[in-house]
């Protein structure tokens, strides 16, 4: 699952990290939207080559590369199956662009998740007028994903020590083997949720309606610049894509 690493916040000091989460959200969505608008190889490659320097600006190229390596198997799968099975004219070109699109989409969203600290995310949501309870629940959920992973490994160890063979047998046996893992995982999570709720209440969670925040997010000039240029690019791309049409050289395909 190493390809998911690209969605995990990494502590860094970079231009991208210092941007306001809200402007990064706009940037990410615009990048993703632009990559969704094309099915041709050249424009997708162009989007991709625009995204790479942004990852580099976040000082996260090596992490990104590692994740993409983890994604390799899935990409090969996409390529092979679509080439063999899709009914379009140039199946290889089609699946090739699908693969680039997948990478571009992941990279777009990773820009956001790599550089936004969970606390900042909930603060951004709050300042976008999401209710505090919801924003808090969301950041708690993100916070507990790695914990849940560790717990799953501990449970697997405990069951293997009891003689459960997780990686043996036919498919039905393997599916049945998930039960001794998933049931304790759910129970442990519910128990933890209850005890977190209790400990939060005993520390006065929800005691006062109006909250104040130690750190408020501020939109700076550079954030406005990012948002405005993102929107400008989006409008331009929409205009070219839907009203002008792509120039011929951009429609280039593999001949198969």
């Amino acid at each position: 699952m190493s390809f998911l690493e690209v969605f995990q916040y990494t502590r860094q000091d970079s231009v991208m990290h210092r941007l306001d989460p809200r402007s990064k959200l706009v940037l990410s969505i615009v990048c993703a939207a632009v990559s969704m608008m094309f099915m041709e190889i050249i424009p997708l490659l162009m989007v991709f080559t625009c995204l790479l320097p942004m990852i580099a600006a976040a000082k996260s190229l090596s992490r990104w590369a590692k994740s993409m390596k983890g994604l390799g198997a899935l990409l090969v799968f996409v390529l092979v199956f679509n080439t063999l099975l899709s009914p379009v004219e140039n199946p290889f070109s089609y699946s090739f662009s699908l693969a680039i699109r997948l990478v571009a989409l992941m990279t777009s969203f990773s820009l956001f998740f790599l550089t936004v600290q969970p606390d900042q995310l909930s603060q951004a949501l709050i300042q976008m007028r999401v209710k505090f309870e919801f924003a808090f629940a969301m950041s708690m959920a993100m916070r507990y994903v790695p914990t849940l992973g560790q717990e799953a490994y501990a449970i697997m160890d405990a069951q293997r020590a009891r003689g459960v063979e997780l990686d043996k047998g036919n498919i039905i046996k393997r599916i049945r083997n998930i039960i001794p893992i998933i049931v304790p995982l759910i129970i442990v999570s519910i128990r933890r949720a209850l005890s977190i709720a209790e400990s939060m209440e005993s520390r006065g969670f929800g005691a006062s309606d109006s909250r104040t925040y130690m750190e408020m997010l501020r939109f700076r000039k550079r954030d406005w610049a990012v948002v405005l240029s993102s929107l400008l690019i989006l409008i331009l791309v929409i205009y070219v894509r839907f009203f002008v049409g792509l120039p011929g050289w951009m429609l280039w395909n593999f001949p198969f």
Partner: peptide, 9 residues
């Protein structure tokens, strides 16, 4: 193991 909840299902 330490935590019984990791094995009871």
């Amino acid at each position: 193991f330490q935590n019984p909840d990791h094995q009871l299902f």
